[in-house]
Computed example of a mutant assay.
Amino acid sequence: MLRRELLAVRNRLTPDDVAATGRTVARRALELPELAHARTVAAYVSVGSEPGTRALLDALRARGVRVLLPTLLPDNDLDWGEYAGPDSLARVRHGGKMALYEPAGGSLGPDAVTAADVVLLPGLAVDARGMRLGRGGGSYDRVLARLERAGARPRLVVLLYDTEVVARVPAEAHDKPVHAVVTPSGVHRFPSA
């Protein structure tokens, strides 16, 4: 029910709202020490009413950061490819799901994410404990489990609207807190991560 409510609010945003939020969130995210020192960042291309990520992807790449983007696999797991600029993306429709923008170049494999210094996670909300509510497909739960199995400890950052930092989201035993959330009004950090 919480997912539906959050998506309904997002769906009322105008394209101008989404674009302005994306620019502001990109500026704030680029000030994070984690991103200032990162050599590899696993990110995603925002779709629909998600806070826009394109400006951030291009700014990271301009800094010389290697940016990895996901490719959705048939079982909802994620493979990874390198972002080489806007022309390196292909619009891919996965069955009845929304179309995603994915890297058109070669596949690096699902384990490529373990090389990331920072992983930017999509989400619908994060609570006061740093627990993230995703869309419910489990793709990023698999990514986080893969990171843990590999002993990788990247910084986990979520990009959200201000109203999506909430008191509490449902969490299960396998859920892990994120380190930070970037919203238009600022950065929220979670020491328990």
Rank of each mutant, 00 (worst) to 15 (best):
L6E: 04
A8Q: 12
D17G: 01
V18P: 02
T24I: 10
V25A: 07
A26N: 08
R27D: 08
E31N: 04
L32A: 07
L35G: 05
A36R: 15
R39D: 11
T40F: 04
V41P: 02
A42S: 11
A43S: 15
E50Q: 08
E50M: 11
D58Q: 14
G64F: 10
V67S: 09
T71L: 14
P74F: 13
D77Q: 09
D77G: 15
D79W: 02
W80R: 12
D87L: 11
D87G: 15
R93L: 10
G95H: 12
L100I: 08
L100V: 12
E102V: 13
E102Y: 13
S107C: 11
V113E: 05
V113Q: 04
V119Q: 03
L121A: 10
L121H: 02
P122S: 12
A125F: 09
V126Q: 05
D127V: 08
D127S: 10
R129A: 14
R132Q: 08
R132G: 06
G136L: 12
G137I: 08
Y140S: 05
L144P: 01
A145H: 12
A145T: 13
R146N: 02
R146L: 13
A150E: 05
G151F: 04
R153T: 14
R153K: 12
V158M: 02
Y161I: 04
D162V: 01
T163L: 14
V165N: 03
V165P: 00
R168V: 11
R168P: 00
P170E: 07
P177I: 06
P177A: 08
P177N: 01
V181P: 01
S185Q: 11
S185A: 15
H188I: 05
S192K: 09
